[in-house]
Design a binder for these strands. Structure first.
Lengths: 222, 222
DNA sequence: CCTTTCATATTTCCAATGTAAATTTTTCTG
DNA sequence: CAGAAAAATTTACATTGGAAATATGAAAGG
């Protein structure tokens, strides 16, 4: 029983604003995503969002949270059909990359501390759920030397850094894309020779979200 | 014989604006870096920069170019004292990271396609010179399988992606920093076990800038 | 059915920003 | 010294996000 009320003044304005923002993001880009433009698309005044979000920053934060949900879904979709092991590693990374290249403006927003509020609980939850997919994949990688300090964080962050950096450099035009708009090397091809240690199996990324959060080395600052 | 003219109307306004922008960037951050604020710090009207730069975007582009020069210098400084091989790899990556964490706002500006003009020749030159340092380091890495397709680009981009992604995730607060503000793992520690192949020596990164640019696989889109 | 109450949305206003046009001031050139 | 060119200012304008006061419509209570 959520507080959903239909046929109010203007219907459910809150989700309507998020949807309009996502559409405008694809059409006009991040820089043109103004509070007034989003409100105008829904058909309300530019101060109407004030009742549902904490200013423009609050609205952008909600949009980013939805972005992280879709981002995680894109990775899971690729992972689902693959058997555990290297195939899933590649599928998850390719999904990470596919989402970033298909929705570059949304992707930039999601990872911009300047534009959205990382302290927002909803954004944190969505962001963490997305990270959990990669997290499950990383466990069992043969780069995960148990004797190296900082495991398993080091391995997770190394994998994450590589695929995230590759996505960012492609989006920002630092690395040229292929003719079809895709990456010049698939994520699965970017790191040949990197797989899982013999006999090791990765944690099922589709179940790993039930794990507890980080302990000694929190992903985010306190 | 550059066109430098001293004691003009207000001295050399062009470099003064760049310097003021760099200062404001450190003090107030990227979002507060307005054309009017920079002009006010120099003591001129907010339309004065128009004579030297193509609007705010042009000024930000010039600031980013200076950022890339300092970025390259920071990496070279670390590399200089180290013998060729793994030590230089680590030194270059640590320099990359050190600059990003010390000047996060400038670093974000440098890699933002939305804020600066990547087609500007000066920015391109500075950006490429910075890339050349990593480029020299990457050649000879043992991940550089000669039989893998796309060499040497694949190897360079893999190294670049990892260190750049790590820097970005740290700057944006996705990965928590250590107590001293530094990374939880040094770049040299993030990737243990990755070194140069036996007997192989890396190209001297301090000389590699004399190499020609890319041919078949350009770094930037055409 | 009517009135009160409150969340919702609008209207109006304001400060800040980037840009353009016209004007003034300074420097260079012949 | 005079005209031309460069540099900087003044003025004006369209947009933006936000604040404050006001209006609107739905829910609740009599």
């Amino acid at each position: 029983m959520t507080k959903k009320r239909k046929t109010y003044h203007h219907g459910d304005l809150k989700p309507a604003l998020i949807a309009a923002g996502l559409e405008l993001l694809e059409e006009t880009g991040l820089e043109a995503l103004s509070l007034r433009a989003i409100a105008a698309r829904v058909g309300v005044s530019h101060t109407a969002p004030k009742n549902h979000f904490d200013g423009l920053r609050g609205l952008l934060t909600a949009i980013a949270a939805e972005g992280f949900r879709r981002h995680a879904a894109e990775m899971r979709r690729g992972v689902e059909g693959e058997p555990p092991g290297t195939a899933r590693l590649h599928a998850a990374c390719d999904g990470y990359l596919r989402f970033a290249l298909a929705h570059p403006e949304l992707f930039r927003l999601m990872f911009s501390k300047a534009l959205c509020n990382h302290d927002d609980p909803e954004l944190q939850a969505a962001s963490w759920a997305s990270y959990e997919v990669l997290r499950g994949i990383a466990s069992g990688l043969d780069w995960d030397k148990a004797d190296a300090p900082g495991a398993p964080w080091r391995t997770e962050w190394m994998l994450w850094s590589m695929v995230h950096g590759y996505a960012m450099l492609l989006i920002e035009g630092q690395i040229a894309r292929a003719e079809d708009g895709g990456p010049p090397f698939a994520a699965s091809n970017l790191m040949p020779g990197f797989g899982y240690r013999e006999g090791g199996t990765a944690t099922d990324p589709l179940r790993s979200s039930s794990d507890a959060g980080p302990r000694s080395a929190p992903r985010r600052p306190s």
